[in-house]
Amino acid sequence: MKFGVILFPGSNCDDDMVHVLGTVMGRETVKLWHKDKDALKDFTTGDCVIVPGGFSYGDYVRAGAVARFSPIMESVIDFAKRGGYVFGICNGFQILCEAHLLPGALLRNRDQKFIAKNCYLRTETANSAVTSALEVGQVLNIPIAHAEGRFYASDDVIADLIANDQVLFRYSDGSGEVTPEANINGSTQNIAGICNAERNVFGMMPHPERASESTIGNTDGRAIFAGMIKAIESAAVTA
């Protein structure tokens, strides 16, 4: 399989992703320019598009609202509808929600402040490519860096996410307790990451690519990429 990492004006986590996926995880990884509508012409449904973090288009209007209309996003939407894998992190999660590839929205943090720090996440499901190498209840320590990370959706949407096992992670304390105090940005029900009903589009606000090497003192995020690679490659073999 190969990965494509989209580069928007204002992206700043694209090189981090290319390094982790290409150098650390050893998979073919290419950058995809946001104006190139044909950038995915050689991608199969066994490949994965990464929508990375940053401040696409300066977060004008609201985070992800302008990037959603970049020429490449038409191809990303089509790719996802055909069963291709798409993973949005931080600003990427915001963009995928704006593109309606994922339900809900990311609003301003509860305290109206930019937050950049490590936080704990409790794994809510192992039934996704992103969490397939994790155990339910497993706690990860992953950095966040966002001003608009407060996940919000209507009560009906939240009920569907829970009923369909689409919640990937919740903000928790170090022991895995999901408490109001651990809800770092005020997200509905502490939700930090979700997937779509078809389980091929994923979004999370924390940055696993910033926690994937022992040289930086944290490898908790590496299990997310390792599990995703194994799950996607295994699915391609059995398809």
Rank of each mutant, 00 (worst) to 15 (best):
A226L: 15
D36R: 03
E74C: 09
T219E: 15
E148A: 11
A65K: 12
R68N: 11
A159L: 03
F43G: 00
V51W: 11
V20S: 15
I158S: 03
R27C: 13
G64F: 01
Q138H: 01
H19D: 15
R27E: 12
R150S: 07
Y60R: 12
A116L: 01
F87I: 15
N190L: 02
F55K: 04
G53S: 04
A80D: 00
Y57V: 02
S214M: 15
G64C: 05
K230W: 13
A211F: 07
E28L: 14
A63Y: 08
E177M: 12
M204E: 13
F114N: 05
D14K: 11
F43N: 00
P103V: 09
V49Q: 03
D59H: 10
Q94Y: 08
S132D: 11
S187I: 03
N196G: 05
V5M: 08
F169M: 03
V157K: 06
D78Y: 09
I50R: 10
G193M: 05
R170K: 08
A105T: 13
A99M: 10
D38R: 08
E135Y: 09
R122E: 10
F43C: 02
N196Q: 09
V24R: 14
G137P: 00
L121F: 13
V49W: 04
A129N: 13
G221Y: 02
S154E: 12
K41L: 02
C119R: 08
L40S: 01
R68Y: 10
K230E: 15
P52I: 04
I50V: 12
I162S: 08
S154I: 10
C13A: 11
G10I: 00
G22E: 06
N185Q: 10
Y57M: 02
D59C: 07
S234R: 14
N109R: 05
S154Y: 05
L40T: 05
R222T: 13
F87Q: 13
